[in-house]
Design a protein around this nucleic acid. Sequence first.
DNA 1: TATAATACTGACTCTAGAGTCAGTATTATG
DNA 2: CATAATACTGACTCTAGAGTCAGTATTATA
Lengths: 229, 229
Amino acid sequence: MTRAQNSRKTRREVLAEFRGGEILAAARRVFARRGFDAATLEEVAQEAGIAKGTLYLYFPSKEEIFWAAVRERMLELRQRAQAAMRQAEGVQARVRAAIAVRGELMRSDTEFMRIYLTEFGHLCAHPTRHRKPFRELYLAMARDLADVLEDGMRAGELRPGPPLELALTLQFLMRDCFTARYMGVFADDGLNLENFVFELFWHGVRPQSAPPRPVKKPAAAPRRMRKTR
Amino acid sequence: MTRAQNSRKTRREVLAEFRGGEILAAARRVFARRGFDAATLEEVAQEAGIAKGTLYLYFPSKEEIFWAAVRERMLELRQRAQAAMRQAEGVQARVRAAIAVRGELMRSDTEFMRIYLTEFGHLCAHPTRHRKPFRELYLAMARDLADVLEDGMRAGELRPGPPLELALTLQFLMRDCFTARYMGVFADDGLNLENFVFELFWHGVRPQSAPPRPVKKPAAAPRRMRKTR
DNA sequence: TATAATACTGACTCTAGAGTCAGTATTATG
DNA sequence: CATAATACTGACTCTAGAGTCAGTATTATA
């Protein structure tokens, strides 16, 4: 019994964590295909290459599997968004960074995106055990963004407005526009979604009567320098 | 058999239509409470004050009931939106009108709103028999709006951009902001949602560097005159 | 290698709820 | 009022799928 029980993970624990991750990945695929209700744990198990009973060694219920799968990615998204916003310089660049991170996730993890798009309503609306934590996480992300917007308002770069509501709205916009592309109602090419969302959020539909500064970006967004560590 | 079979509806038909309507109303309440999957037809029947079997005299399946309930309202919404936009004068007023109609529906028919908010993702994403008609209806509404936006662009009142995508985005915005209020993440008072959405869509978050016209509305939006029918 | 501990299995149980249908109530008709 | 037509009922069937658990395989330990 002189096993490594001090902070370091047991071989067993590592294995368990790995298996858990595998299950969540499989779950993500299946939930994406079917939606929460139509998904069966039988299919999840099959997808993960294990028996249904094994799922219950790692998670207590279907709901819990679902939520674990979603939360994992949402936490990751928040981390990345925070990092990207910290990296960027100035309000505009930070907003762009927030958008870029979300776009990146949507593009790279289509499974998660689909779940997110499809189940968002249910996650918000119906009283599950996970509604509250979901909302909190979602709100936390919005608050990160709202802080940036508030800075911008103080600096006069943005007109005054309710920062949290605006931040939430930007989150909505990203989700929706990707939904729309996924639904096939948005042009499938020739429309840079991230740019579209940014432009709309930043300028609205009104014509630029008097461009404040002629900072027409050369080709793409100038997001490559990485000063101050 | 010299019954009234000429265009005019039979007593029977009227009755049947009435019963059908009652069922859809009940269904709307139950689907709103529970969401599609968790709703049971037993509860719908109870809510309508009839037996479960009777439902099947009017509709062939749960799905069909759901879709009928949703479509009814969506068609109504489209009608109203078209009318309101026709009434209004100029692009800005028309956009405001489109927003107002949607806001009105959201406020007046909370049951429908909840269904709409919660099941939107599913309606879009998963291959039901009703995905296509739903999308078509949703797109049709967007196109109505897109026509207005396009006019605005031609007239130089809006900067150029993809009209359909912008129209869809405005629809999204309305839905989302009402979702948010319903979720309780938007301030519950002191924020006029319709105005919030309009302002954001129209001006973005950027400060008004040079107000094109000093048409600062006095207190509320000036939406009461109704000239030229 | 024996045996204990742990990880996994999949056939099984149990439930909920969609859809059915023989029977009953209601309404129309001669 | 008799009887036919129609409208409704709710107990029942059937299915799908979440969750269980006795049994099997695997891995660690003596």
